[in-house]
Nucleic acid binder design. Structure first.
Lengths: 346, 346
DNA sequence: CTGAAAGCGCTAACAG
DNA sequence: CTGTTAGCGCTTTCAG
């Protein structure tokens, strides 16, 4: 049987109040008594019951996190860093995967409500989100449960994002500097609109026409399998004889799928098509060719999310002072873009 | 403020017991009363408090899971499948990452003890595990908390594993059939000993000498970065002029690192070296060349783990009847081994 | 410095 | 069918 504070009290011949005192290190307890109790605790392997504590403190020391999927390196890393940092601070993380499903099919958020999490970390909170989800979100807000999101949202929820716009411009300008005149783009709802805007802005800033034929971006449905998506999109582009020599993909998995397809179509990367990805997943540097991509500072973003959330939890003064924290990102140049295009006069 | 059962009772003009009845769907409640209470619940957004329930039922409906890392597709998928299946059954999963660290540096297990998880799923439980970890494990057993492990262990803990031995033999025999006479092996403590044994058995079964020079296997330390490990091991093999034409890697990440290194050394896969991996991660089929590998039935393994664990929790009769459930695995043949070696007489 | 007692939100007898 | 009540294990006044 699992031991309770009473067992320890009996074992040490003291009251449960005193046991509680030494367990929590509060109040002063005579040294001998303390040691006696400690011995009893060790002997019985006593571990205080979180549930009982929770009832009194009104704090579960539990944080909920929703991510679309876990088997995607970006989310897995984020969750891992967050979990480890929270553990150090004495909190427990519960991760749920949404698969972009509605709350009724996949009750992530209501679980968090039942468990009375002290805070919520939201992976993707897209704008076209199902009605019921924003309803649930409202509940968290009504109950004063702090929220931090990894995608920008309205509802004055603090968000932590990479500066996608700026870095996308940088990525596309890298292709432009290499001499590419026709640059295609593959985006998706799930990777956000900003990378597409960055692409468009880069072209405009460089006085290049935006050719809608070279832009594939499903803004309605979420993409479940990015590589497959990249694979199909680029095939479509090539098989429809769209002319392009550069390709900007809104994440690395899409880029890898694209390269795979190009390879099968007999097109070489980078000599036939230069490809840029986004995220810098582990595989980016390992792929052949190694991917030129934009590196997100995941660890820093995770740390910031935890800091902000715990600050709001433990010091709820400025709770709903919304902040949008945007992290600069770094273009990592590898092999998938090759050297400047030869047939370039200048 | 967050609403309690009392608020609902007051709102609906009934006793808290009746509210409890409709919330739990037990006992019969007059339809009108039930509807009145339901309206009050909806109006107040009442959500029952898990902690309070836990105190009574002695069930947290929480499962703990330890994995070495989450940013490894194998563990991420396992965790994801398990989380989703548990959610459907009304359980919550808490995942902790051990990084193979000791419990004192990284208190995963003690968190689970505090939270009084109903069951434990252990990712890797290696034999050389730190003292303190097996001590913690004992505590779970003493407290009758069911455990399921994804690596074979003694302590009569139920384990769910792939049939590594058989499938490794199959993988190596694939290389042998392709005409490879010199086959190297890269293993590690973290991927278990069975894949190495399978490699050795395959050679012996086919009357081929086992050349220790072609076997790299660190059995002491855990590998944190498999691709890097594969990269370095194969470089070592090549730079020391070890002769081999086939290579069996104890997981796909090692294989990918190996291929990357071979590529940089000017060696082509599969024409110069044929490579086989293990696990069939998503990237295996996407890599260039696509990896021939052994596919683990992760989803089935996850489902089985959940079934067994919940069975033990909800029906604790045959609790410590140890089972070792081993799943057959499938060799997936792709491009990294190429066709039969040409300079082969037969 | 230590003990007695109230009560957190809920469920499960036990009465009516 | 519904209300009253006794705890679950713990923390926290409030007295000694």
């Amino acid at each position: 049987m699992t031991k309770t504070i009473k067992d320890v009290a009996k074992e040490a011949n003291v009251s449960i109040a005193t046991v509680s005192r030494v367990v929590n290190g509060k109040d002063r307890v005579k040294k001998e008594t303390r040691e006696k109790i400690q011995r009893a605790i060790d002997k019985l392997n006593y571990v205080p019951d979180q549930a009982a504590r929770t009832m009194i403190n009104k704090k579960t020391r539990t944080i909920g996190m929703v991510v679309p999927v876990l088997s995607n390196e970006y989310w897995a890393k984020l969750a891992e860093f967050i979990q480890r940092k929270l553990l150090k601070k004495g909190y427990t993380l519960i991760v749920s995967t949404s698969y972009y499903e509605s709350e009724s099919d996949n009750p992530c958020l209501s679980t968090f409500l039942e468990r009375k999490v002290d805070g919520l970390i939201a992976g993707t909170l897209t704008k076209n989100m199902e009605e019921d989800i924003s309803e649930y979100l409202e509940r968290f807000i009504k109950q004063d449960i702090p929220i931090v999101s990894f995608s920008s949202v309205k509802n004055n929820i603090t968000s932590i994002t990479g500066d996608d716009l700026t870095s996308s411009i940088e990525a596309v300008e890298h292709l432009i500097r290499l001499g590419h005149k026709q640059i295609a783009f593959i985006g998706s709802l799930s990777t956000g609109i900003e990378r597409e805007l960055g692409y468009r802005n880069a072209l405009m800033l460089n006085n290049m026409a935006v050719n809608e034929d070279l832009i594939i971006s499903n803004r309605k449905d979420h993409v479940r399998n990015f590589t497959q998506y990249g694979y199909h999109c680029v095939r479509q582009l090539v098989l429809e004889n769209k002319e392009f020599s550069g390709l900007f993909c809104s994440n690395d998995l899409i880029a890898i799928g694209a390269i795979k397809a190009l390879d099968e179509l007999g097109l070489d990367v980078p000599s036939d098509k230069a490809v840029v990805g986004f995220d810098d997943i582990d595989m980016a540097g390992l792929y052949r060719p190694a991917l030129t991509t934009v590196k997100q500072p995941i660890e820093e973003m995770a740390a910031t999310a935890v800091d902000i959330l715990l600050e709001q939890i433990e010091n709820p003064i400025e709770r709903y002072l919304q902040k949008n924290i945007s992290f600069p990102m770094e273009l990592v140049i590898r092999q998938s873009c090759g050297s400047p295009k030869k047939n370039l006069t200048s």
